[in-house]
Design a protein around this nucleic acid. Structure first.
Lengths: 156, 156
DNA sequence: CCTATTTGTTAGTAAAGCATACAATTTGGC
DNA sequence: GCCAAATTGTATGCTTTACTAACAAATAGG
């Protein structure tokens, strides 16, 4: 069959802008060692809600920026338009999100949370709190701050 | 279509045994923050070689344990038999790996590196060195040790 | 006003990973 | 020694994810 040279562009850092520093919101971390020894902690936190991390991210972002356009949403979460479509579609089908044509620009869809969507986000944030409690049971506040600070340094 | 409740079992920790502590071999790390702000560094290190991390892991493991059975290899890298098959197949097609029926157990395939496979692994290790140099340009040795130590604590 | 760009949408594609089914082999109870 | 059960490898097909390409509607700019 085909080869699986499926790795990305080879760029060492693939990141996005945004603010670091809020302890509030650490979802997990993940280190790869060589030899396949993958040590990680992933918050599969949202499994109980039937939500993926990406979906929660979308809800969260729409809550922060009501009326955000799909293209802007996708860009902030590093998804292309097609991928954004499928995620927004599913959230809409579940009744968590609604679309409206933007008045100022008829090409754009303005996204808003429904009440159900707000409820789901509240639940998701509850899951994050649980996860953070777990994190804090293992690491001191200084350690986590140090970790976040180190991450910030990656992007300098 | 179907829902995308594709998350794993909900287990908070999904890990594997193995030794931590060798600075030698840190391939990258990756922290997820809420709200979709994903800060990470992944070593797309092997892209230039046309190898994925999993493939390198397989080569590495076979080099360490010549004659290892597919099932054992897959288990150590947390892949099921089918996934292991495809990866081993591709590496074999490229001439990096060869299979032999185990003499002691006719069900098993014993895996060995070819010379080409050893060469590829050497190259891959070179890439890791480069990556580590990058890491060390940003973090002190104590910081990395601290990081690895923190990871170890996750699994206690 | 006409062309180029942007945005959303759909459809098709490729890769990763999994479950299932099956064959060959080994193991264990009798 | 014999037969059922378990193990291992293999092939097939499915699901999920994410991408590209093609297209339509709307906007922007000369």
């Amino acid at each position: 069959m085909d080869e699986d040279n499926s790795l990305a562009s080879g760029a060492l850092i693939e990141d996005n802008p945004g603010e670091i520093g809020e302890l509030d919101g650490v979802l997990g971390f993940h280190i790869r060692l060589a030899h396949g020894a993958v040590y990680r902690h992933f918050s599969e936190t949202f499994a109980g809600l039937g939500l993926t991390q990406k979906q929660v991210s979308v809800l969260w972002l729409v809550a922060d920026l009501p009326g955000i356009a799909q293209i802007e949403l996708g860009s902030r979460l590093q998804m292309d338009r097609a991928t954004t479509m499928t995620i927004v579609n599913r959230l809409q089908e579940r009744g968590y999100l609604r679309r409206e044509r933007s008045e100022s620009d008829g090409r754009k869809q303005s996204l808003y949370l429904t009440e159900a969507g707000e409820g789901a986000l509240v639940e998701a944030k509850g899951c994050i709190s649980q996860h953070e409690a777990w994190l804090k049971s293992r690491f001191s506040e200084e350690e986590i701050e140090k970790l976040v600070e180190m991450l910030a340094r990656i992007h300098e």
